[in-house]
Simulated assay, not measured.
Amino acid sequence: MKKLFRILFGLALIGAITAWFLSAPQYVDTADFENLGGDVARGEMVFAMGGCNSCHAAPDAKGDDKNILSGGQHFASDFGTFIAPNISPDPNAGIGDWELIDLANAMQRGVSPDGKHYYPAFPFTSYVRMEPQDIADLYIFMKTLPVSTKPSEPHDVGFPFNIRRGLGLWKFLFFKSDAVMEPSDNAEIARGQYLVEGAGHCAECHTPRNLIGGLQLSKWLSGAPNPDGPGFIPNITQHDDALGTWSAGEIAEYLATGFTPEFDVVGGSMGSVVENMAKLPDTDRAAIAAYLKSLPALERSQPRQ
């Protein structure tokens, strides 16, 4: 029995050490961000691409107040309620004392300046596909936004999901930087893929997740349960019951105006998405449409039972 106990103890110790190393935070290559200047105008477009104010503005903020990134919006999930933090340029309540590399590690590795894992409610799983220059431009633009001194609220997440180190194991299983769809030689589709799979983070809402929150890539953009309440987030593949009946021009028009081909009007959280997409160049909305039209037709994903 003593020998068996020693073996089991040894295996448990090896497992714990392995889990500790696998769950360690990973960081971007600093060389990718050295000597990168930023452009405010381009950064404003990246800000719109990423829809930063859709989550980080105060609840019910309107007009110019949507650029006050004081946080406070609540996002329900199967694991608890996540609350968007203050990411305004305030050095105490917000991220005003961050360097470019801090923003890069947050957006592309899901790691805070003090080495803690962020929850994937923050879509670093998509932002990891962004180009360093876009992040540098975004960094410069965000410095120009109004400050807010409102403290960030803690997430309402219970055990065991409140153990941040455990998120490193989740990342080991599900955090990938590869393109989801096969890259296209068509420049317009390639640009659309960059926007949809990266900065636009469309899959974070439109792709179903497994029991522990990983995106089901085999059901890419085929719709998902609405985490905030009743209803279902639409399938946006080329299935006949989804966007398959829309032309590329109709998709681009929807992203610019919020009007569907059936003269319906965008609603819910998609309204904020359209508000930001409307700020992009026509070529970017056309590129998003081209990428969506290139997707295979998948049936709408069904809610988990």
Rank of each mutant, 00 (worst) to 15 (best):
D29H: 08
W20E: 10
A84V: 05
A286Q: 14
S88A: 12
A278T: 02
F174P: 00
C205E: 00
P132V: 10
L292W: 01
A121V: 13
F232W: 08
A289Q: 04
N67W: 10
G244D: 05
I101R: 09
E275F: 00
G71Y: 03
Y119K: 01
E299M: 09
A16D: 01
E262N: 14
P132E: 05
N53G: 04
G192M: 00
E204Q: 15
A203L: 09
L11T: 13
S269L: 03
G63D: 11
I212W: 05
R129W: 08
A106M: 14
G214T: 02
G15D: 02
A187W: 08
H74A: 14
F5A: 15
D65I: 00
L11Q: 07
F161P: 00
D97M: 11
E131K: 15
V266C: 00
D185P: 11
I7M: 12
P208Y: 06
V147P: 01
F47L: 06
G115I: 10
D178C: 09
R42L: 14
D60P: 01
K143D: 07
Y127K: 01
F232M: 15
N67L: 15
H239P: 04
D64Q: 13
G249A: 14
D60H: 12
G71A: 10
V157Q: 08
M1S: 14
Q305R: 13
G50M: 15
A104H: 04
Q133E: 13
F174A: 12
V273A: 01
A136G: 09
N35P: 02
C202P: 05
D134Y: 07
P132S: 12
A31E: 12
S54W: 05
P303L: 06
D64W: 09
K219S: 11
S247K: 09
V111Y: 06
M270R: 00
N186P: 04
A41K: 14
I251L: 11
T144D: 12
N53W: 02
G214N: 05
I95L: 15
G37R: 11
S184Y: 05
A57D: 02
R300T: 14
M1F: 14
D90V: 06
C52I: 08
T260F: 02
N53R: 13
P25H: 08
C205R: 04
P123A: 08
G249E: 15
L215I: 12
L36T: 01
P296Y: 04
